[in-house]
Structure formats: C-alpha cells, structure tokens
Amino acid sequence: MFTPHRAALLLLILTAVLYAPSLGYGWVYEDQNDLETTFSTTRPAGNRWITAATVRASFAVSGADPWAYHAGNVLVHLVNGGVLWAMLPATWPAVFALGLFWLHPLQVESVAYISNRADLVMTTFLLLALLAAQRRQWWAVVPMALGAMLAKESGVMVLPLIALWAVWRGVSWPTWTRWGVAVGLACGVALVSRWGWTIDLGWTARELTKLLWFGTRAVGPMGLSVDQDWAWISPAIAVGGLVIGVCLLIWSVTHPHSAFDFVVLFVVLSVLPRLVVPLYEGLHAHHLYASMVGASVGIGYMTPKVCT
C-alpha cells in the first residue's frame, strides 16, 4: 500500500537524484572567497564555529576539490527534510509540505551554492529545536538555539520562532523556558550589535519589498536570483511594499491561528535581522532557506479534511 511514509521515502530518493549532478560542479561566485575568509581552515571562524567545523570536515574529505563540499550541502538538505518529516504528522498534506521543502526551485541556490552552508546548518538546529519543543524536551531547545547562533548569526531568531510555533500550536511551556528565551534574545542582540546596530527605514522598506517579490515567485518555479538587479525598487515602490507588508503583518497577528498567518509571521521573523539591520548584502533566495521551514510546517499541520 502507498502510505505517506513510503511517499516521503520516494521524495527522499527523488531529491537525492535531482541534486546528485551538483557533486560534479565547481566553485561558484563567492565560494572561494568565503572559504578563504569566513570558512578558512587556518583562520578563526568568527561567530560561525559549527558551520566552519562542517566545512573543515568537507576539506578533510576532498581538500581543494569541491565535490565533498557540494555533497555536504546535499546531505544537510536531506537531513533537514528528514527532521522536518519527524516533526510533522504522517499525512498527505505533510508529504506535500516535505516536497515543498526538498524540491522547490527556491532551494536550489541554498543547496548548490557551497557558501550557503551556514544557512543549511543553522536550519538543522532550528528544526531540531522545533522537534525538541514538540516532544516537550524543553531542556534541549536552548542548546539547539545556541547551536543555530553558532552556525549563522541570524540563528538568533530561533527562540522567537519556537515561541511563535508554540503559540500557534497551543503548546503550554514551563515557566523557566521564558528565562531561556530572554537569555537567548540577549545573546542575539549582542551578536547582532556586532554587525552595527543602525535602523534604516528605507533599507527595511526595500528588503520587505524584495521579500514580497520572493513570496509571489515562490508559488511556481522561479528564476535565478543571486546578485539580482533590484534597481526597479524605486522609493515609491519601496513605500508601497512597506505598506503592504505591514498590513499583511497586522492582519496575521490578529488571526494567529490560521496556517497562512503562521507562515507570514514565521517568514518575516526568520529574516527579521536582515530586514532591520543594513548589511553590505541584501536579501537573496538562499536567505529564505529557514523561511521554507515555516511554509512547510504551516502546510504540514493542515488536516487532510482541510485540503480536500
């Protein structure tokens, strides 16, 4: 009989086959530059200790040959989908959600681009933290959140994301975990402060407009997005994007129990540091890898009755 579990296994095989050609690909765009600086095997790794450790593991396997780095990215992507499947109910909507996470073209930039290892590993810890919260293993949530922060700075949002998930699922959590959230957020603010804490409303409006554009493209196969020319976002368009984005957020906060509103809040929270802190690099498709967890979880928890 064709059960959801067997369908998930089929998706696993399909995803592995789809991404297998990437093992023969070379270094692309900022790969070598990033390996020399952020992921250097000889220099300090900055905040990204865990990511650097995984890159060093790839280096130990293939040295300067990129195949092990690509294999590492594909492996982490498959593991992330596996953890996602472990936290979803074994239903057909969950199979669809898993397919969204594993197969959507928006994920290509994250998986095929070696430099994006940080987002992949950070999302592993996000998923493990969500899984721990779902199983009421609260003692594991804070270490997982800390692991996410040590994979990538934007991992500071893992604790607020878990809080959002708990509220959405109606999960009661022990009082002491609130202190964990407070300590985690304090660590996060300290981390983000190292980037330079300056609020620029124009930047936020522009990045929010880009996020809306990605959202409209996410419903179908999308084109290349790396280093895209965003010159079409004039100040007037950015203000329009800001207004639409804020209206969408207000509407979502006032309807916190529907899957759509959970997805909207999850996506915005997961990229919030990038929306509010002006960095040298704006929003790209690979920054939305963790956001896809929210979309998949939102769909995965739908009951079959809702979908039919």
Binding site: Y19, P21, A112, M222, G223
Partner: peptide, 13 residues
Amino acid sequence: WAIGTASLLPSWR
C-alpha cells in the same frame, strides 16, 4: 517544482 529544480540546478555548474 522538481522540473524547475532540475532546470535551474545546471546554472550553478
């Protein structure tokens, strides 16, 4: 989505 991924992936070669 699978077709989209398969067609987009080679651009990262």
